[in-house]
């Protein structure tokens, strides 16, 4: 499964990046591909490109604030969770997404 994700927290210096690491760790363990764009207080980093979006099976938006550039994901299946979920339960999150995507097919 190809996952793309955006993480963004209120202060934009700590949680945003912890969430990114946790999502990548969990995704690696479960054998998926992932790219995470962080929208911290320094601005967006590791920005998702058009190709990334095109190739993605699922978009995870892990944010406590409103993110920038959501219109990029038009037509894509999107999951919205708080940053805390991405930090605390990244595995379960990805597993559940997988189940639901399979059920859909």
């Amino acid at each position: 499964m190809k996952i793309i994700a955006i993480s963004a927290c209120t202060m934009g210096v700590a949680h945003t990046f912890i969430a990114k690491d946790k999502l990548i760790e969990a995704s690696d363990r479960l054998g998926h591909q992932i790219k995470v764009e962080t929208q911290g207080s320094v601005g967006a980093e590791n920005i998702l490109t058009e190709e990334d979006v095109k190739a993605a099976d699922i978009v995870i938006i892990a944010a406590d604030i409103n993110i920038n550039g959501e219109e990029r994901f038009k037509g894509k299946p999107i999951v919205r969770v708080s940053v805390t979920v991405a930090i605390k339960q990244p595995e379960q999150l990805i597993k559940k997404i997988e189940e639901q995507l399979k059920a859909k097919k």
Binding site: K74, I78, V79, V81, K88, P90, E91, I97
Partner: peptide, 21 residues
Amino acid sequence: QDENAEGDASDEELEVTIEFK
């Protein structure tokens, strides 16, 4: 707090909703 690096820090049942457009 979430201290464990491996696996999920919480086993709480997560409700996941995918928005298909």
